[in-house]
Structures are given as structure tokens and as C-alpha cells.
């Protein structure tokens, strides 16, 4: 993708909807194309969060690794999704592994470049933080729904599910 195409892609991505044109040009300067083969690691738990990604196609699994080799996949992301928020908050470390489940193309945005631009222009920093907050809140809500273990307690409301889980634990 040429610079012009990159800027065009970012401009039409829902994550950047309504972003001021001057910021788009700044972000494009921090962006580059990456590809991952199926099974390839995108990043590893504990590693420095040097990028965030906009997935163009493919699928990425977020996985808590296990020493015995059998990790637990806690989320998957697909085309259009934003991958990685740890670049925003110190100590800038990945909390889990990310691994491509299928051939995946993405735009990688360079965190050091971005943080520099956010520090230089707090309005850009605020704008980006707000966009990430929206993604984080949505994922948190999805995780909260899963906490209810709703399929095990089909007829229940959240409160009933919590009671059922508590009763199960006491038994």
C-alpha cells in the first residue's frame, strides 16, 4: 500500500471516523503494512507494546500461554478490529500472546512514533485515548457478559447467575 492508500484506508476505517485531516496525515506517518502467516506470533506476553494493529483480514487469537503448551484463547479479532491497547499505558507490556489463526494482513501503527506525537499535541492524545476507551469498554462489557456464564444458567438474570455460581462454590 502506498502512503496515499494508507491514508485513504485510515480515513475510511470506522475506528478513525471523524478524525481531523491533519491528524490523519500524522498517523499515516506512523503506519506500515504487515502480514502474518497462519500460526505466526503477532506479539508475546511480557513483550514491549511497540505497535497497535488494525486488522484488514484474517483472524488473530489472544491467548494466555501455559507452560505446558496448552494456552487458553480468551478472544479472537477479525477484519476491522483493533488489536492492542497496551502501547497507551505504562509499562507498555503485552498482557497475553497474539497469534494469527489464518493468514492475516494488518496495518501496524508505531507506538513510539505515536506516543511522541500525542505528547507533542495533547488534543491528539485525548482523541486517540477516547477512541481506545470506546473499544476497551466494549470488550470489557463482552467479558462481563461471559463472566455471568450465561449458557450454564440459561433462564437466569445476572443476579440469579451470581447466586447460582456462589451456591455451586459453597456446595
Amino acid at each position: 500500500m502506498e502512503i496515499h492508500d494508507l491514508e485513504n484506508y485510515l480515513a475510511h476505517h470506522p475506528f478513525f471516523a471523524g478524525l481531523a485531516p491533519e491528524y490523519l496525515a500524522l498517523l499515516t506517518g506512523c503506519a506500515g503494512n504487515v502480514t502474518f502467516a497462519a500460526g505466526e506470533t503477532v506479539f508475546s506476553q511480557g513483550g514491549t507494546a511497540e505497535h497497535f494493529y488494525l486488522l484488514r483480514d484474517g483472524r488473530v487469537a489472544l491467548e494466555f500461554p501455559h507452560p505446558a503448551g496448552n494456552g487458553v484463547v480468551i478472544d479472537t479479532l477479525d477484519a476491522g478490529d483493533v488489536l492492542g491497547a497496551s502501547w497507551l499505558v505504562a509499562p507498555y507490556r503485552w498482557p497475553y500472546d497474539a497469534r494469527a489463526l489464518a493468514p492475516t494482513r494488518a496495518l501496524a501503527l508505531d507506538a513510539v512514533c505515536l506516543r511522541g506525537k500525542c505528547d507533542a499535541d495533547p488534543a491528539l492524545g485525548f482523541d486517540l485515548s477516547r477512541r481506545f476507551a470506546a473499544v476497551i469498554v466494549e470488550r470489557l462489557h463482552a467479558a462481563e457478559l461471559r463472566l455471568t456464564d450465561m449458557y450454564a444458567n440459561p433462564a437466569s438474570d445476572v443476579s440469579d447467575a451470581a447466586v447460582a455460581a456462589g451456591a455451586g462454590g459453597a456446595a
Binding site: 483472524r59 487469537a61 489472544l62 491467548e63 496448552n70 494456552g71 487458553v72 484463547v73 480468551i74 478472544d75 479472537t76 477479525d78 497469534r99 489463526l101 489464518a102 463482552a142 457478559l145 461471559r146 456464564d149 449458557y151
Partner: peptide, 23 residues
Amino acid sequence: VTVDAAGSDWRGNVGVVTQLVRR
């Protein structure tokens, strides 16, 4: 198809079903 959690051999979605509406 999505599941709440899976082992590393699962190739499908992980997440809540409500998130699939968008896809």
C-alpha cells in the same frame, strides 16, 4: 460460531455471540 473460551487448537471465534451481529 463463537465460544466463551477455548484451547489453542480452536480456529473459530472466541467472544460473546452479541459481538457477531456486526460481522
